[in-house]
Amino acid sequence: MADVPGAGRSFPYVSFLRVYEPLDAFSDAQQLAILEQRTRERRVTEQLDRADALQRITRLVSDPFPHHAQDLVRVLHFPRSNGTTAPFYCPNQLAVRTFLAAESLEQTIRGPLLDVLLPEVAREAHQARLDPETLTESTAKLHTRSATWGVPFAWFVLIHEDDLTEVIDDDGEVHTVRVSVTISECIDRARRAVANLAIAAPELDLLEELTEITEWLETFRRDAVVELDYGPVADLVFPDESPMDVRMGIECLAETDMTGAAAAYRRLASRWVPIRQLARAS
């Protein structure tokens, strides 16, 4: 399939945490949509997603919401213990995610600027396009989380450096790095970290973030797969030792080794603070 026009343009650094489930985890209607897209290459899906985002933000009339386009589905082929691979699926749920993002933006931005970014007529039209029952179900079970200008440290708790890793690069430029692992392992890792932090550092925001992520993961089937998609920020940090640094930092806190914990944090800060400062750069 030919490349999608406009899909190669660069975007701000956005990373994703996705949950993929087997086909029978979805409703009949969702399965039909998945089956229509299951043979499409991941590269093409990402191109379509970027092209659609570009089209929405460059409309003559400000309206960043999706209209009636078919929701994209990502496919992940994950190895099983018997040596074969099985397909897992992650619906983009773009309509619901943009609805929730708009609600969040309304809480942080007021006045004329909000109307410029999200005109009231566009917000009302988008809400009218959403089916209330589908909205409730999708909101309760979002398959995708996103973060701008860096990967949240809590996400690194879920993955280890020896998990299945795919590097997407071209001519020496890393376009993204995707790390995938079973959801059961992610939940176990998160629970151990929560237990350690609850005793050693209950005041840390990381504890609250991990608790919330664990509850989110537990809404999915235990045979699901989790994928951390670095996005274009991977080109600035890969190869990345952040998962090891986060794990060592938590272990040091549990052992009351403040020197080791501080060293792990300094390594993380030196890697990620400069990237997060880009969000405030002019």
Rank of each mutant, 00 (worst) to 15 (best):
E137R: 11
E209M: 05
D169Q: 15
D245Q: 15
N92V: 11
P12I: 08
P64A: 01
D71K: 07
F99N: 06
E251I: 14
V226S: 01
P87E: 02
W216V: 14
H77I: 05
D235F: 12
F220G: 07
T165A: 09
V246S: 04
L105P: 01
E208Q: 12
N196W: 05
F78Y: 15
R56V: 14
L94G: 11
D28Q: 15
I250L: 02
A69F: 02
G111P: 03
R56C: 07
P239H: 13
N196K: 12
E209P: 00
A269C: 07
T148R: 06
W155P: 00
V44K: 10
V151M: 01
R9I: 14
G6W: 01
A7M: 13
T214F: 08
I168A: 06
I159H: 09
V4E: 15
E203G: 15
D24V: 00
E173F: 12
L117C: 13
Q107S: 09
I159P: 03
A190V: 03
L217T: 01
E209F: 05
P64D: 05
L114R: 06
G111E: 01
I275F: 05
V179Q: 13
D188R: 02
R145G: 12
I183A: 03
A102W: 00
I199S: 14
I159T: 06
D205G: 05
P119N: 10
R97F: 02
T144K: 05
D71W: 04
A122S: 08
A200C: 07
Q93E: 06
D131R: 13
T84Q: 14
E133H: 08
E41S: 14
I213D: 00
D71G: 11
Q93G: 04
A261E: 00
